[in-house]
Design a protein around this nucleic acid. Sequence first.
DNA 1: AACGCCTTCAACCGCCAAACG
DNA 2: CCGTTTGGCGGTTGAAGGCGT
Length: 322
Amino acid sequence: MGRPPCCDENGLKKGPWTPEEDEKLMSYIQKHGHASWRVLPELAGLNRCGKSCRLRWTNYLKPDIKRGNFSREEEQTILQLHSILGNKWSAIAKHLPGRTDNEIKNFWNTHLRKKLIKMGIDPMTHCPRTDFFQSLPQLIALANLRQIIERQPWDGHIEGLQTVAVQAAKLEYMQSLLHSAVSIVTSPTTTTTTSSLNTFTTELEQTNHLCPPQVPSSSVPELAVQVPHSQMPSTSFDQEIGKTNLFSNNIVNGNEWCSMEADNSSQKSLLVPENSIPPLIDMPVQNFCNTISTPNCDGGNSIPLPSWSEILLDEELMGEFA
DNA sequence: AACGCCTTCAACCGCCAAACG
DNA sequence: CCGTTTGGCGGTTGAAGGCGT
């Protein structure tokens, strides 16, 4: 246990602030500043602890605080920064003038997080959720059981399961793209090169040519997932991808996510059109991320990394998680 | 109108690290 | 160097308001 709550001492007031208290705090800080939060309440004539005063000031009373709904641009910024920084609310807030970390945190928890979950994206990893895959064997077992019970031919069930598996493989594939991007950005060993994003994606595609992944039989028993080319997303990144919004706003094409950006036609999708298709045949079910973000299959030569900082982030941001 | 459930967000709690003596 | 204080941060809570029945 840490220190006892400071507000328990001396019967200091807790709870919502009254307009009178706000006024006292405002006028004191405007006149004298806030050199020491410890002594400020006493000097300002407030029956509050310093911590409570500081919180009230930084989260509510500070003159430069912007109130009201978050704009679409702010929403995009939060999503983008969260995909990189995680729950570093104060760091995120530094990039949103007038917004407090508390406000951003609340907005995330009440809006953005739910929106991601609704779309099947893990709000912590910003990758498609893989819960489904973990339960796939059970689903198959259930289907099998049902087949036994109903004594119906297997053909239809297998087709159905394969369709489901193809969809899941797509999700996993998109996750791998995201995951590899994030791992590159956040890796402490990342070397900043001058390689273009285009070079990177070309080699990424070559990797897939050279190293068609295999289905681990243990993870999806009796189900080699044959993925039709026409149904797979491409590994190619769009050359015109903007300096912002790589991670978050264009991940899932053609659903609610895109509707968020419906009026932003200048921003291209992370996933390129279906006429650019990687030669993936057998989709690995568990280790997409490793396949793509780790060394090439010709013996450990890493894929040349693009300068993600140039693509995604300004220098200030890079400094934050360096 | 009344009730219960859900959502939002201001405020609090506990922990950590830097500053200080 | 060490113990204490302080400011800051992220997680959590609970009151208030909204909404459906």
